[in-house]
Design a protein around this nucleic acid. Structure first.
Lengths: 132, 132
DNA sequence: TATTAAAATGAGAATTATTATCAATTATGG
DNA sequence: CCATAATTGATAATAATTCTCATTTTAATA
């Protein structure tokens, strides 16, 4: 359900800060960045807004990566790769599995509304830096 | 890394109980079941063993479903569907995306070691029971 | 079989991530 | 400007999971 939202300075900062981060930050990381702009902002405000923005489809919440949720300014259909070594999260184009939903619905009796793919392994940088 | 394991009665009970559950239980749910067999077992022992078994590939840990981890006795390659209404977790055959790894590695510079797909939507039962 | 080192346990404290509470502040539409 | 709903900050509360540590159990071997 879409939630009506009034303007707030804090939400604007939160959204902007997420845009600036190509990585897929956790709430914790975002909090450190956001406090540089608004030192008085509350952690509760951050969580409240991230959830709200995600529920309205303005940002994306990524679960299944380590312990905590990550947030993504990119709402286009795409998947994620997490490097086991450096823990960075990378985007993977959705066209790696074009027929996925159709095939899955065909094979099951489910109505699929969402899906997420999380790959993990070693990224190029870490592979080259050796010592694995 | 594979961890050396000595036998323990508790681990046996934990493993057996997971086998008996076709669903994909959380630690919390397993704990209630396991206490029926060994009322003195500690929650820490349960978590310790679930993690150990998962690290050794004997069971599978599923993240990205709601707040807590689920555990799966089925270690064959397969995916999961969670019903948004009844919250049950279902298995999806891996053949919905046969070329996924190869294509993804081809498109990226990553070495992919693992991947998970989580679908969500409405299951057959809930769709028929209406009222969505 | 007695010895011993490594592994495992139970109980509960501690930690981490996140949500809830609530009084005070701010935004919005008339 | 006023009324109402939305939002905030501070902090308490919760939920899931991990850590600590003294005690017990396992497994290998002398």
């Amino acid at each position: 359900m879409v939630i009506s939202m009034n303007y707030s300075k804090q939400r604007e900062i939160i959204f902007d800060t997420l845009q600036e981060n190509v990585v897929h930050p956790t709430a914790e990381y975002l909090y450190t960045k956001i406090k540089e702009k608004d030192p008085k902002i509350s952690l509760a405000t951050l969580y409240r807004n991230l959830n709200q923005l995600a529920e309205n489809g303005i940002i994306k919440k990524i679960d299944g990566l380590e312990n905590s949720s990550h947030f993504d300014h990119n709402t286009h259909e795409h998947y994620h790769f997490i490097c086991k070594k450096c823990k960075r999260v990378f985007d993977i184009d959705a066209d790696v599995a074009p027929e996925l939903i159709r095939k899955t619905e065909e094979l099951t009796d489910f109505v699929i509304e969402n899906h997420d793919i999380v790959f993990s392994g070693i990224c190029k940088d870490c592979r080259q830096t050796g010592s694995n």
